[in-house]
């Protein structure tokens, strides 16, 4: 589905953010990308849809070599990749509905977008997604009137509006409080599995990564230092990714599984409040 080969990014300042990354995502799974600040997580995700232009290497999305596309073809490829951001990046002065429908911009003409005349199947899908992310009834609310958690739900709906083959998620929870962060991560991972869309999720919080991701990739200094199942994370592995530290309290213990399962049931009530 996604195959990254020898991806290198050197910024004009001379700083090397990625030093030859190889990564395959074959099945619809949630892949958490962890690593310290400056390890290249953001650059990696942005090189995939070329918001950041990679210096060398290849990114294959199904059969499309994203790195070789013209501007026009790149726009068509970007329609297949939904992106979710740390700061939500909604258009603050537009309504929730306009923000969600902006996920279809790649499919409508300039004038359709100008008059906000989207195809009826897009509109009903937008209403369905709003209900699914817990924002039913909010379609005419302006984005700047929402809380952080609600904004991120709009961000998720916008990305899923694209019916993407891949979700690129950059620190979705870093601006949220711990409870909202868990709700958003849970929603995100549920939806990725429901829609059968693989997701690459940059995340700072090792606990959240372990709990919700199917697979964890550790970046250190622009190269992959770990690639394995979430339960394979050990203090030794974290030392390798982040450097020496006492990880004994961070690694999830088997007993913690049950409490994680419990608050899953309370999600329905919480979702709209988030």
């Amino acid at each position: 589905m996604l195959a990254i080969t020898d991806l290198v990014k050197v910024y004009p300042s001379g700083e090397q953010a990625l030093g030859g990354v190889n990564l395959q995502v074959e099945e619809p799974q949630v892949v958490a990308v962890i690593g310290s600040s400056g390890a290249g997580k953001s650059t990696l995700i942005r090189c995939i849809n070329r918001l950041v232009e990679p210096t060398s290497g290849r990114v294959l999305l199904k059969d499309t070599d994203v790195t070789a596309l013209s501007r026009r073809a790149l726009r068509r490829a970007r329609r297949r990749m939904g992106m979710i951001f740390q700061e939500y990046n909604l258009v603050e002065r537009l309504t929730v509905m306009e923000n969600v429908l902006s996920g279809r911009l790649g499919y409508v003409s300039f004038w359709q977008a100008y008059r906000r005349k989207y195809p009826s199947q897009d509109i009903s899908r937008a209403f369905e997604l709003l209900r699914r992310v817990g924002l039913e009834g909010y379609h005419n609310t302006r984005a700047d009137a929402l809380s952080g958690g609600q904004r991120q739900r709009v961000g998720i709906a916008r990305a899923l509006m694209q019916q993407p083959d891949l979700l690129l998620v950059d620190e979705p929870t870093a601006s949220l409080d711990p409870k909202t962060a868990r709700q958003i991560m849970r929603l995100l991972c549920e939806l990725a599995h429901e829609q059968g869309t693989p997701a690459l999720v940059n995340i700072h919080d090792v606990n959240l990564a372990q709990e919700f991701a199917d697979r964890v990739v550790g970046l250190a200094g622009g190269v992959i230092a770990f690639d394995g199942a979430a339960h394979e994370l050990t203090p030794a592995v974290l030392n390798e990714i982040y450097g020496e530290e006492d990880w004994s309290k961070t690694i999830k213990k088997p007993t913690a599984e049950r409490s994680a399962g419990e608050d899953r049931g309370s999600m329905e009530q919480e979702s709209a409040a988030g």
């Binding site: 849809n49 918001l51 726009r75 068509r76 490829a77 970007r78 329609r79 297949r80 990749m81 939904g82 992106m83 951001f85 700061e87 990046n89 909604l90 258009v91 603050e92 902006s102 996920g103 279809r104 911009l105 790649g106 300039f110 977008a113 961000g155 916008r158 694209q162 690129l168």
Partner: peptide, 14 residues
Amino acid sequence: DRGTTEAIEATGAS
């Protein structure tokens, strides 16, 4: 805010 335009670009908008 550059982030907002980045998000719109990422949808494949012209």
